[in-house]
């Protein structure tokens, strides 16, 4: 397992936002994280990304216990969070954005041609055909294209786990489809993807496994192939569905 969370809990003052959450994500799979507002999705993501520290439980990367206490720690372990719009500089072009902070150089000179070539290869390996001119400023791109650039950056930088928090929330229908296909391709190339979404269609379109959070607890982690939409809806809204889901302390379903 690339990433393994066991017994994660997190409190904000008296409020227990996450309680005893288990989740494992392997390379090459998309794990969708679903749950109602306030179920703890964002908190869980922030714990993995190093923005929050956990109050209890273990985070294992490649089977080894790791402390992730800052975004830098997370990045060092190959965990990359793709933020909606914060990640790109509008006045720079696509190549410049992709390599920002990790520019390739020849001596003290920037090697723009090498960067452009590498960017083109990366985008074509992801079958991205929507961005034709790599030298256009990011400001002139559509929302879907911007999201594509942000995601491609994660691939280019050899991240191993990419976390996407509602990447299609602000996109139109056609652009959503492009981003969904891109997410699927990330996993097919061997990256692990943790994908947070409200839209069950989007979840089913890309996910291999679906993890449902209910009031800070992990209701169930299911194979997408064995799951139906109504089961997931029940897990999100009541924490259980038939034999699946949470039981209370005495083994009685809440």
């Amino acid at each position: 397992m690339l990433l393994e969370l066991t017994g994660i809990s997190k409190r904000f003052g008296p409020v227990e936002v996450l309680s005893d959450v288990d989740l494992a994500i392997d390379a090459g799979e998309v794990c969708a994280l679903v749950g109602d507002n306030g179920a703890g999705k964002s908190t869980l993501v922030k714990c993995v990304a190093g923005i929050h520290s956990v109050d209890g439980g273990e985070v294992r990367v490649d089977g080894e216990v790791r402390a992730i206490s800052s975004p830098r720690d997370a990045a060092g372990l190959g965990i990359e969070v793709v933020y909606q719009d914060l990640a790109l500089c509008d006045n720079l072009d696509v190549v410049e954005n992709l390599f920002l902070g990790r520019e390739k150089r020849r001596g003290i000179l920037l090697d723009d041609d090498a960067m452009e070539q590498l960017a083109a290869e990366t985008l074509s390996s992801l079958a991205v055909r929507t961005i034709r001119n790599l030298r256009q400023p990011v400001a002139s791109l559509s929302g879907g294209q911007r999201q594509t650039v942000a995601i491609a950056k994660a691939v280019l930088w050899n991240s191993r786990l990419v976390i996407l928090d509602e990447p299609t929330a602000a996109l139109g229908v056609a652009q959503t489809r492009q981003v969904l296909e891109l997410i699927r391709r990330l996993a097919d190339q061997g990256l692990a993807v943790l994908y947070i979404s409200h839209n069950l269609n989007d979840v089913f379109a890309v996910a291999d496994r679906i993890a449902a959070l209910y009031l800070g607890r992990m209701a169930a982690v299911l194979d997408a192939a064995d799951t139906t939409q109504s089961q997931v809806v029940e897990l999100i809204t009541s924490g259980r569905s038939g034999q699946l889901g949470l039981t209370d302390q005495n083994g009685v379903r809440p």
């Binding site: 902070g101 003290i108 920037l110």
Partner: peptide
């Protein structure tokens, strides 16, 4: 235009938040 410093200068001017995240 041809050094890393110049590139980072534009990046900070365009979106400081993104520049920070990129490790500038």
């Amino acid at each position: 235009h041809r050094t890393r410093f110049g590139r980072h200068l534009y990046a900070v001017g365009g979106n400081p938040e993104a520049a920070v995240r990129a490790g500038v």
